[in-house]
Every structure is written in C-alpha cells, then in structure tokens.
Amino acid sequence: MPSDRIFGLVALMTALAFIASATQIQTSFLSDPVGPKMFPILIGVVAVIGSLSLILRPDPNPDWPAMRSFMALLVAVVVLIGYAFALKPFGFLIPTAITAGILSYQISPKINAAMMSGLGLSVGLFGLFKFALGLGLVAFPRFLTG
C-alpha cells in the first residue's frame, strides 16, 4: 500500500477527530455570528477533502530507509525526549555531552570522535551560552555541587 494512502488515512482520522472535538468547544453567551466552533470545523473539512484526494490518488512511494535506520531514528527520538526531561534536573553539561555524543555516533559511527564531539560541544556551547551570551544555564545538578 502506498505510503501516501496510509498518511491519507491517518490524516483523515485526525481530521475527523479534530472536527468531533471542535463541535464540543464551549460557546459563551457573548458569541459572534461565527462563534469559536466554525473555523476549526472548516479547517477539518478541508483536511478531510485533502486526505480523501490523497487516498484516491497517491503519489509513488518515497525511498524509505531500511529497518535499521528506522531503529536509529527511533533511538534518536527517545534520546532527545530523554534529554528534554534531563536538562532541568541534571544541569547542562552531563546530559548535553551524552546526547550530543549519541547523535554524533548515529551520524558517523566512530566511537572516539563521537565522545570527543559530545564533550567538546557540551563544554564549548556551555561557555558560549553562559559567558558570551549570558544565558542562565546551570552547569551541574544541584546534588553534585551541594
């Protein structure tokens, strides 16, 4: 099945769900002729038409990467989400070094180069942001520095 068709189906479902939730929007007594529901519903309708047309007339498939690359992408997403959560409690330096190192390894699998670029980016960017640009970043987690 062409990827466009799958995407069309997903978009169709999302659009229908969007319309459904748009009908549930609370209206206030102070409403204008259009109200807060109308425009979201219109958007949903256009999206439904677009997805139907995509399902009926899909383009040829793009070159999807092999399964292994997909796993790599998934790992990258998980690592980045982890980084998002780690940035506040663990300070800047350690999570950044780890995340940058992993990403670097994923782009070019050389372990030493990846470690160096992780460390270098972490320290270098911290210096840049903290001292040149004056952003309020915390270097280490509180439980290390006391």
């Binding site: 980045l80 995340t99 990403l103 670029s117």
Partner: peptide
Amino acid sequence: WILLPGVT
C-alpha cells in the same frame, strides 16, 4: 557529526 549535534 559535529555540526548536527551542535545544531540540536
């Protein structure tokens, strides 16, 4: 491998 992690 340095540039893109840096951008991130």
